[in-house]
Design a protein around this nucleic acid. Structure first.
Length: 470
RNA sequence: UCCCCAGUAGCUCAGUCGGUAGAGCAGGUGACUGUUAAUCACCGGGUCCGUGGUUCGAGUCCGCGCUGGGGAGCCA
């Protein structure tokens, strides 16, 4: 490898950041090769830095032309040194005229290389999740996912929020958001037994039962009531037998928490966050978004632009029920006050009735979690869901119950064990303040942005019921 | 977990009335060409998901199972 020549990412080369006429080295994987009898081959190379591949011109004079270059197939790893020149062909502005092509890693059997230069189904690509990032689609998803993650960090950082690394392992079995994965080092075949015949978890690693977290919210509230503006952004786990295109057993979630804030501040923050990160994708990943618009979902760019431009609709649960009862649209589930809204109802409201993102607020307390603040009417809580057309619930949040006696009454009413929440109740006992937060499902966000229909295709290695390959 | 649908070449699929399998792409070889997921010709490539049954005979019909997908519920 010649170290006197600078190595460049293909993104930099195609952006014009490397002047034409300069010598450069590019490293990547072959997408296609076309031979010409005019004494050259065209080798299309990608390195993941951008959607577009770089066209390499391989002249017949290369010493390994016949022995190696004409045998390059999809997936071969190569290192190319040459001169960057304006392209004489159509389809690209610049190309790399190779002076040397080094085959770094060949494909041992081109016939069985799983990523052929042809369309593949996403179902198939999931079975080769270790190689699918080499495809256009998954590569584009990966770059957009990064862009969104980065934008989320920027958004909160700019507004004075601190990133809190809440624990992955939790002792609280009642975070209230679904089934948990157990964390244990006990011998499954022959576990220690307590006097009552049950498993003796006091002998387990942590001296008690532990699980993977289903939400960092309770922990982040503690930091909220000290650093005022905080958020968590990390993996969460749900052991639910959900087999849908919108659920994963392991997924990432963003959960901001704001002190001295009410539900309206919270809704404003949610709206600003979505607009900020969508704008970032439109600006920074126009290439990938154009690809999605062309191949995956025609409307995806237009949809983001519209969301960024227009104010979100805000609506109380009461009003939503009235609207659903008034419409002549027929639903599978009848509409009554107090019911939880079904997918069909949320879709009608977001897609047909308002036609843009909708923030639904103030739900009946019976269908919401114990930590949500009881409204003065005594029958609703200060909960809010952001419903996005085409995907449904993308954000769920609330103003939290900051009054100890009201929180305790709720815990009692629900038959929950108050001592298990003593540390959480302490937060209401020592300097409690109104505060509010929400959770944004990261994969659902990536899915919404890209138009990718299944969240299993927007996370590198999806974990689902009966699915933990790779 | 429930309801539907599917499983045939490396991939995407066709396969009629039940009579032992075919196309496109990918791969190999060659022709041609500053080509654009090129074009043309030829070649290789099959445990028809598994299992049991009906039948002279099953890719095809029936039962059970497995796997995948869509929808619902739960939720993010």
């Amino acid at each position: 490898m010649d170290r006197s020549i600078s190595v460049h990412l293909i993104a930099a080369v195609l952006d014009g950041r490397v002047p034409s006429g300069s010598r450069a080295m590019v490293q990547g994987w072959v997408r296609t090769r076309r031979d010409s009898k005019a004494g050259l081959s065209f080798v299309s190379v990608h390195d993941g830095s951008c959607l577009e591949p770089l066209q390499v011109i391989a002249p017949v004079e290369l010493p390994n032309y016949a022995s190696e270059v004409t045998h390059l197939t999809a997936g071969c790893a190569i290192r190319v040194t040459g001169e960057l020149v304006p392209s004489t062909g159509k389809g690209q502005s610049v190309e790399l005229r190779a002076e040397r092509i080094e085959v770094v890693g060949e494909v041992e059997d081109p016939e069985t290389y799983p990523i052929a230069p042809k369309p593949h189904s996403f179902e198939y690509l999931r079975t080769v999740a270790h190689l699918r990032p080499r495809t256009n689609s998954i590569g584009a998803v990966t770059r957009v996912r990064h862009c969104l993650a980065q934008a989320i960090q920027n958004f909160f950082h700019q507004r004075g929020y601190f990133w809190i690394h809440t624990p992955i392992i939790t002792a609280s079995d009642c975070e209230g958001a679904g089934a948990l994965f157990r964390v244990s080092t006990l011998d499954l075949v022959n576990p220690p037994r307590a006097a009552d015949g049950g498993i003796d978890f006091s002998q387990d690693f942590f001296g008690r039962e532990t699980f993977l977290t289903v939400s960092g919210q309770l922990n982040v509230e503690a930091y909220c009531l000290a650093l005022s503006k905080v958020y968590t952004f990390g993996p969460t786990f749900r052991a639910e037998n959900s087999n849908t295109s919108r659920h994963l057993a392991e997924f990432w979630m963003v959960e901001p928490e704001t002190a001295f804030a009410d539900i309206h501040t919270n809704a404003d923050l949610a709206e600003a966050l979505l607009k900020f990160i969508f704008q970032a994708v439109l600006e920074e990943r126009a290439d990938d978004m154009a690809f999605f618009a062309q191949r995956i979902d025609k409307a995806c760019v237009q949809r983001l632009e519209q969301v960024v431009r227009s104010p979100f609709e805000r609506m109380d649960y009461d009003e939503a029920i009235r609207i659903l009862q008034r419409t002549n649209r027929s639903f599978e589930f009848p509409i009554t006050w107090g019911m939880d809204l079904q997918s069909e109802h949320e879709r009608y409201l977001a897609e047909d009735y308002v036609g843009r993102p909708l923030i639904l607020m103030n739900y009946p307390k019976e269908i919401k979690s114990f930590y949500m603040r009881l409204n003065d009417d005594g029958r609703t809580v200060a909960a809010m869901d952001v419903l996005a057309p085409g995907i449904g619930e993308i954000i769920g949040g609330s103003q939290r119950e900051e009054r100890l006696e009201v929180l305790d009454a709720r815990l009692d009413a629900l038959g929950m064990n108050k001592t298990a929440y003593n540390w959480y109740r302490d937060l209401r006992r020592y300097g409690s303040v109104p505060h509010a937060g929400f959770g944004l499902g990261f994969e659902r966000t990536v899915s919404y942005v890209t138009g990718m229909a299944n969240v299993r295709d927007v996370i590198p290695f999806p974990r689902t019921p009966r699915g933990a390959d790779f």
